[in-house]
Simulated assay, not measured.
Amino acid sequence: MSFAPMPSIDVTALPADGFLLDVRESDEWQAGHAPAATHIAMSEITARHAEVPTDSRVHVICKAGGRSAQVTQFLIDQGVDAVNVDGGMLAWQACGHPMVSENGTAAGVL
């Protein structure tokens, strides 16, 4: 039995106007996230997946790529065009992409 590889994208190849779904927990989100990202924690995705757009590609991100890979597969199973962001927010931060925090402190990855 063979499985299709997980669709993924390098953080440097993300389209500027793409839909970015951050699936980290609330404390991670509050510490630092991409300015235009939408937050739905992995633990809430089954209940809230109707909030994810179905008319455009969804780029799923977490801290390093493990949780987002699971959510990407779940979304694909729901018929969503989803792709995992390789390296997650650690790669995002390493590339110097902008980040904002929700708690007024300097943004960073937990």
Rank of each mutant, 00 (worst) to 15 (best):
P53N: 02
A4Q: 14
L110K: 12
C95H: 13
V80R: 01
D22E: 03
A34C: 03
R48V: 09
L21S: 01
H97W: 13
E51R: 07
S68P: 14
I9R: 02
P35R: 09
A82C: 00
S101W: 11
A31K: 11
F19C: 02
A94G: 03
V52I: 14
R24L: 07
V71H: 04
M42H: 10
T72A: 01
M89V: 06
P7E: 00
S26G: 11
T38G: 04
V83G: 02
Q30G: 11
V71A: 00
D81R: 00
G18L: 04
V60Q: 04
A34H: 07
S101L: 08
P53K: 01
G79M: 08
I76V: 13
H97R: 15
E51V: 09
G65P: 06
M42E: 12
E28Y: 06
Q78M: 14
L110S: 11
H97F: 15
L110D: 12
S56Q: 15
E25I: 05
G88I: 00
P5K: 09
F19W: 05
A50C: 08
S26T: 10
A69T: 01
E51M: 09
L110V: 12
H39K: 11
Q73H: 14
I76E: 11
G65R: 03
N103W: 05
E44N: 14
A91D: 08
A106W: 10
A107D: 10
C95K: 13
I45Y: 00
H97K: 15
D17L: 03
G96Y: 09
Q70H: 10
S26Y: 10
S43G: 09
V58S: 00
W29I: 10
